[in-house]
């Protein structure tokens, strides 16, 4: 009886509040995560002030945020601001991502349809996967110069491999029963490809895009570190040279946001296209 009265008293509480409570009980992380962030940042700020850490070693949180504000408060055409440099880096990331993924996808599909080609190339692809591809950034900058091209090539190359490899794995793991079913209906190879193989490989292809998105930003920054005139990577280098550690941190925040937005966009498309697939990620170990 006591339980029943308790239950009814909660249901008669004001509707918006009780809905909030319900959400909180079901998913306490929506409050805990921000609390954790604020706590860590607070400890950081307090610790730096209390122990009087020099700002070139570890800047205060408030200084980093101010640096972020300064970077965006400048004219969008200023070479020292985040707008222009951010746009250059973003262009490198997006161009390289699209080109690299497209080439990786097309080549991956092509190779995996021809068994002999697949078997012949596989050892080299595996070997290339083990090579840390950022190591050849200096060579690429030497070949393609200091402007945006070398960075786009760098990003393209980094995005190419996850797509290639995931395509090859994806097409290889298509359920043979599905192919047999189509064959029993006297389907043509192109019908088998479009109706079964390609959709079956899509979860792997999207997993490849997820990885490529992360690699794209790494590739652009490493390329800019090696040699560039504009870009957020260039800005990190010049801020470091001036011991402006807070500035470097604030650029990292810009890069993190860029990565999050890219990742979120891919996942949004993925949720629509792969509504039918179990959500656990298919991860392939691929070296940056």
């Amino acid at each position: 009886m006591a339980d029943v009265s308790k239950l009814s008293s909660t249901t008669t509480a004001p509707a918006p509040l009780s809905r909030w409570k319900m959400r909180l009980i079901r998913r306490p992380e929506i409050v805990l995560s921000p609390i954790l962030l604020v706590t860590v940042l607070g400890l950081w700020e307090g610790g730096v002030r209390f122990f009087d850490v020099p700002s070139y070693m570890l800047p205060r949180v408030s200084t980093i945020i101010y640096g972020l504000y300064q970077g965006f408060a400048i004219s969008i055409f200023s070479r020292g601001g985040y707008w222009l440099n951010g746009a250059v880096t973003l262009a490198e990331v997006l161009l390289g991502f699209v080109i690299g993924s497209a080439i990786g996808l097309v080549l991956g599909i092509f190779i995996s349809q021809i068994r002999l080609l697949d078997a012949t190339l596989r050892p080299y692809i595996v070997a290339f996967q083990c090579l840390p591809k950022v190591a050849i950034a200096p060579i690429i900058v030497m070949w393609f110069g200091y402007d945006i091209t070398s960075k786009v090539v760098m990003v393209t190359m980094l995005c190419f491999f996850p797509l290639l490899v995931n395509c090859m794995v994806g097409f290889r793991s298509v359920d043979t029963d599905r192919i047999e079913l189509l064959r029993s209906l006297s389907a043509t190879p192109s019908q088998i490809f479009w109706k079964v193989k390609f959709p079956s490989a899509l979860p792997f292809i999207f997993a490849g895009l997820d990885i490529a998105a992360v690699f794209a930003i790494v590739g652009a920054i490493v390329g800019e570190f090696v040699g560039a005139q504009l870009g957020l990577g260039v800005q990190i280098l010049s801020m470091n040279a001036q011991m402006d550690t807070a500035g470097s941190f604030s650029v990292c925040i810009v890069l993190a946001v860029m990565g999050l937005v890219l990742n979120y966009s891919i996942r949004a498309v993925q949720r629509r296209v792969l509504f039918w697939a179990p959500s656990e990620a298919i991860q392939q170990p691929i070296n940056v």
Partner: peptide, 14 residues
């Protein structure tokens, strides 16, 4: 003129 049924239903999930 043949229809096949397999041990698993092999319905395409999409």
């Amino acid at each position: 003129d043949i229809g096949m049924v397999f041990q698993s239903s092999i319905l395409l999930p999409w």
